[in-house]
Amino acid sequence: KFNKELSVAGREIVTLPNLNDPQKKAFIFSLWDDPSQSANLLAEAKKLNDAQAPK
């Protein structure tokens, strides 16, 4: 279960257009550290992506 959630969340995070590479890497490392938090980490990444969207 975690492997699928981890890969789905990881793929989504790397495609978020408004995150820079260090931010993406930080989220990916957090996913590896605790795969059970993949849904929460993906939600946080999406929030940050939205907040950094060009206005």
Rank of each mutant, 00 (worst) to 15 (best):
L48F: 03
D34N: 11
A9H: 06
T15A: 15
A9C: 06
F2V: 10
L6T: 06
R11W: 15
K4T: 12
P54I: 09
S38N: 05
A45L: 02
S7A: 13
F2A: 05
D33K: 14
K1C: 14
V14F: 12
A53W: 04
E44C: 12
A26S: 08
A9R: 05
N20Y: 06
V8D: 14
A43K: 09
N40I: 11
A45M: 01
K46W: 06
A51Q: 13
D50N: 07
K24C: 04
L41I: 15
A39R: 06
F29G: 06
A43E: 10
V14E: 13
E12H: 06
I13W: 00
E44L: 10
P17S: 05
D34Q: 07
R11D: 07
G10V: 15
N49C: 02
I13V: 04
A26L: 09
E5V: 11
F2R: 05
F27R: 00
P17K: 09
A9Q: 05
K4V: 14
V14N: 13
T15F: 10
A45F: 01
N20H: 09
L42V: 12
N20V: 04
K55C: 14
R11Q: 10
L41A: 03
I28E: 04
K1Y: 14
S30T: 08
P35S: 03
I13N: 01
A45N: 02
K24W: 04
L16G: 00
I28S: 02
D50I: 10
A39P: 05
R11F: 11
A51H: 07
S7W: 15
A39I: 08
F29R: 12
N18H: 14
E44R: 05
K46G: 02
L31I: 09
S38F: 13
K4P: 11
L19K: 00
A45V: 00
G10T: 15
K47I: 08
K46S: 05
L48T: 04
D21Y: 13
K4G: 10
S7G: 10
L41S: 01
L31T: 02
V14Q: 12
K46R: 12
K25Q: 12
Q37R: 09
G10N: 08
E5T: 09
I13D: 01
D21S: 08
G10S: 11
E5P: 10
S38L: 13
K47N: 05
N18I: 00
L42S: 01
L16H: 03
L19R: 00
K55A: 13
P35T: 04
S7N: 08
V8E: 14
T15Q: 14
L41W: 03
V14R: 09
